[in-house]
Design a protein around this nucleic acid. Structure first.
Lengths: 321, 321
DNA sequence: TTGTACGCGTTATCAA
DNA sequence: TTGATAACGCGTACAA
């Protein structure tokens, strides 16, 4: 495959000149430029990007690390992808399935300079390990974290969850079942939101169990079957994700119950599933989060200041409540 | 950042020896190996992958080009990702939104050696342009294509669609509305399947319009509204995708009609939406397709022979018919 | 078993 | 306006 030297030889100039032409440097006579461009075209030449990366110490690739392909994550990835592309960056996707080794693969890519930065959407590995990689390049996360070295674009779940609970209260629901996702900061915030909510309105203890680690449609279906069996039923279910809510809703309806007449159901994230099933849910501005993440990365790469979008939850009222 | 030379210097050996240690070459004395490994550990050294790529002429990265984040595509990407990872390859994702320039970005990555191969899931750009890039590396597609240079893992839509139609016939449906997606080979195959089906069973012309370019939930909702207005209604709707079917199903139910009592609905692809809404649908073995794609790429990279999975459609009967 | 020295393809500095 | 040359960091003949 043709390289810059061959072009130089055929055009009767030096490689330096060819490089100047390619990178649109000034101080190249029109004549030589023309000549060089001709040869480039003839030989169907493109600069080898590995050589460029080696020279520049940058690849214009950003790694994105996530656990699995769920709709919310994908819409974030999509937004992040779009803005990155706009600035000439490409995305390398790492789906880790929560496997430490796979997470390390992504981190090692940063260390070995194959990606310029890393967007860490979800991780299972310890934060201090991730933190130890920040010396190799910018790492930004989407999860809740307060750190000097790893900026985060997370949103305070306390606010979002409270928004949903207060809405349910306003609609007259009093016996609310909470379905939480994996035990992390986010879930703790949601639990705190619920406790404060109960206290604020002086609600009495429902005695319902706490559901944890529920995130999928399948999980939702399980919870629906639990609900069906109860004699003293919750009048509303506040879910960890739209998928759980979707699972509950459809399974409950399959059994002949009606939503929202028999029970109100609230999702979280406002993904397609929520739209599809007319779920009341909490909208999450993932696109803005993605843009913020990218902006932070850029500013770290160029060590400049970044200006960020403000982030706010929004309640989307539909027919499940 | 430390490089191989520094390691060599500190270990009191040559760079060649360090390289041999790193790459587990034989003929290195235990003593020197030990010494080198120690220094490597001390300096927290990793080989720079750009330098390696430059040297090897390969990056161990495969590009995946798609149009947009739809569920079927994502499950394919997921499968492809998993098998690639297993063999030490990483994935670079290109979402093109059907934009020629963005598609060219992906192709240029192959030309400039930033990816070793390209999986072309969906494209809008002309095949002969893509074909002209095959000289830079393996390109495999998921779309229907018969080409010497671009292998395809597509599946004959004629078969799949016929499977669905025959099932509908067996269930007693006679006035079937077809909803097609974008006008491509796949759609032509489906149309042909329907025509043959009509002829085979001697069905009379339904007089229904042909819906084209319908792929989203939203499109489905539109079609549902059309269906509701009709006096002479189709008794079954065979859809281009599960999403369209989902849109139709939910919108029709919102208007008080019942599925399958008032109309049978059949999806295509067997994605999560189909499971969620209990849609009868056609299962597509995307995981096998992904593995085939990867195997083909590998065999092209190493020019060896590839052994492939056989691919077969399967009808998934649920409650929408 | 180890070292020397060159090439991979660019870009940037310096000098002309 | 152009050219020679030195990096960038690694792997590998070839020689020892």
């Amino acid at each position: 495959m043709a390289n810059i030297q061959e072009i130089a030889r055929l055009a009767g100039v030096s490689t330096a000149t060819v490089s100047r032409v390619i990178n649109r440097h000034p101080y190249v006579s029109d004549l030589t430029r023309e000549k060089v461009l001709n040869i480039i075209e003839q030989l169907d030449y493109v600069p080898n990007s590995n050589a460029k990366s080696l020279k520049n110490g940058a690849t214009k690739v950003i790694g994105v690390m996530g656990v699995t392909y769920n709709p919310l994550l994908m819409s974030l990835v999509r937004s992040f992808h779009m803005i990155s592309q706009k600035y000439g960056f490409n995305i390398m996707l790492f789906m880790t399935d929560g496997d430490r080794d796979k997470e390390l693969v992504a981190l090692e890519m940063l260390r070995s300079k194959q990606v310029d930065a890393l967007l860490c959407l979800v991780r299972t590995i310890e934060w201090d390990i991730i933190e130890s990689y920040t010396k190799y390049g910018p790492i930004v996360t989407w999860q809740r974290l307060t750190s000097d070295t790893i900026p985060s674009v997370f949103m305070d779940q306390y606010q979002g969850y409270t928004l949903g609970l207060e809405y349910l209260y306003a609609r007259g629901y009093r016996k609310i079942l909470n379905v939480y996702s994996s035990k992390g900061q986010n879930t703790l915030e949601r639990i705190r939101a619920y406790e404060d909510f109960v206290q604020k309105h002086g609600l009495k203890n429902t005695g319902f169990p706490q559901f944890h680690n529920k995130v999928t449609i399948h999980d939702g279906e399980e919870i629906a079957r639990w609900w069906i069996e109860q004699t003293d039923k919750p009048d509303a279910i506040s879910c960890s994700t739209d998928e759980v809510a979707a699972g509950i809703l459809t399974e409950i309806q399959r059994s002949g119950f009606s939503v929202p007449d028999d029970v109100g159901i609230m999702g979280f994230d406002n993904t397609d599933s929520a739209h599809l099933l007319d779920l009341t849910t909490i909208h999450y501005p993932v696109d803005k989060q993605a843009e913020n993440a990218f902006n932070i990365i850029m500013s770290m790469l160029e060590n400049s200041a970044s200006n960020l979008h403000p982030l706010q939850f929004r309640l989307i009222e539909r027919k499940s409540t």
